[in-house]
Simulated assay, not measured.
Amino acid sequence: MDEPKEAAPADEPREPQVRTLDARSLRGLAHPLRMQLLDALRFGGPATASQLAGKLGESSGSTSYHLRQLAAYGFVEDAPEHGKGRERWWQAAIRGLEFDDTLLDDPNPAVRGAADLYLHEVATTHARELSTWLGNRERYAEEWNRATDMSSMTLRLTAEQTRELIEQMHALVDRFRGKDDPDAQTVRVHTHTFPLISE
């Protein structure tokens, strides 16, 4: 398969959307550094390859290459309003990602491998974010320490009941989107729902 070409910048700014991963787009994203770069732009705003390199402990050559690959698949794009001088500024072109579970059963083993890598990297990212919070919690006011949660709950459910639980949890989180409060901070919510493996 030929590498996709970078899309030309649109004349009008558009609102980033949630993107459903398919076999083609997964190929462009299933790499640990690319996933970190996309998250850095989604949550930290526009940046240059050099700025992202310093933040992630990578070389600017490496971040430049992987940013171009992300752009080729439509995950990031130029941020021309930030561009001053010769450095290229990048911004996220999407608001979020949805994973298609059928990728795990794709007939192409390369797609299945990319899907597996992607999910494992998501799990690694969740663990890293939680560890980062625990290592920096003293920087926050006590009200934030009392407002965080690290719980696990064990239930006996059918697959259908588990799906219903997940949908209701997501619907609850969606109720809190878009609230505009001057005291608000970006809050990360992780959910992990899976059957326990019997020993």
Rank of each mutant, 00 (worst) to 15 (best):
D2E: 09
P13L: 06
D22K: 05
A23L: 04
R24N: 03
L29H: 01
L29N: 03
H31Q: 08
H31F: 02
P32T: 04
L33K: 08
L33S: 03
R34Y: 00
Q36R: 15
Q36M: 10
L37Y: 05
L38Y: 01
D39Y: 05
A40N: 04
R42C: 03
R42K: 08
R42I: 06
P46R: 05
L52W: 01
A53K: 00
G54R: 11
L56D: 07
G57S: 07
S62R: 10
S62F: 02
T63D: 02
Y65V: 12
L67N: 01
L67G: 03
R68V: 04
R68A: 05
L70N: 04
A71V: 01
V76H: 00
D78P: 09
P80M: 02
P80K: 01
P80C: 04
E81R: 11
G83C: 13
G85V: 01
R88F: 04
R88H: 14
R88G: 00
W90L: 04
A93H: 03
I94A: 09
G96A: 15
G96S: 11
E98D: 15
F99Y: 08
T102I: 08
L104I: 08
D106W: 05
P109V: 02
A110K: 08
R112C: 03
R112I: 03
D116E: 15
A123I: 11
T124N: 13
T125L: 01
A127R: 15
A127P: 03
R128H: 11
E129H: 14
T132S: 12
R137P: 00
E138G: 00
A141K: 14
A141E: 15
A141G: 15
E143A: 12
E143T: 11
W144M: 07
N145M: 04
R146H: 08
M150F: 12
M150W: 10
S152L: 11
M153S: 14
T154L: 10
L155K: 01
L157Q: 04
T158N: 08
Q161N: 07
R163H: 09
I166L: 14
I166E: 14
E167S: 13
E167Y: 06
H170L: 15
A171C: 07
L172C: 04
D174A: 14
R175I: 04
R175E: 15
R177H: 14
G178R: 10
G178S: 02
D181S: 10
P182S: 02
D183N: 13
A184D: 15
A184Y: 06
T186G: 07
R188F: 11
R188N: 06
H190G: 08
T191Y: 15
H192C: 11
